[in-house]
Amino acid sequence: MKGFLNCAVLTMITGMFILAVSSAVHADVTVGDEAPDFVLTDTYGVSHSLSQYEGKFVVLEWLNHDCPFIQKHYRSGNMQHLQNEYTAKGVIWLSINSSAPGKGGNYPPDVANQLSEKVGAAPTAVLLDPEGTVGHLYGAKTTPHMFVINSKQQLIYQGALDDKPSTHPADIESAHNYVRAALDQAMTGKKVAVKSTPAYGCSVKY
């Protein structure tokens, strides 16, 4: 009986912790500003900080495999293609999962790895952010929500992956990919034409 009481207390404490985190301060970042540093652990237990990648371009992709908008870009191979293409060019691609425990898309690390393998995901790492700390730090609203950071660790693009807000894979071919455009422009020393767009997708499951 006492054990069950402990369990109830533990569940309550966990619940309170989730509540406390979900009401954390909402701090967005503005394009042109320095990208705020963070430290997160990936699905293999390896720690990554943003600052360790200074000197390289970094893409942050908010991820939730249960979301039909994410599925649109993975089922079609669109996201994996971008990941392969740009990591080959030296870009660091960090997929961040901010789903809270018990919410859609929150998987233990080994299951997350199976999912990545199954869909052939090719980011540098999948980072786990179950408290939503980094999600709130960047003001990540949707899955996907994309952020592009230059080698000086300044935010140069935030928003949607492309200009076709839908769940239909067929829309990808005719879509203009904002992340590709921002990377291509910035990596060849040009100005990023479109710096910010409204992200589209499922809500991040904080």
Binding site: Y107, P108, V111, Q114, K118
Partner: peptide, 11 residues
């Protein structure tokens, strides 16, 4: 519950 859910295909 997450493990059980993962048994279904995410797609």
């Amino acid at each position: 519950p997450q493990n059980l859910r993962a048994a279904e295909s995410p797609y």
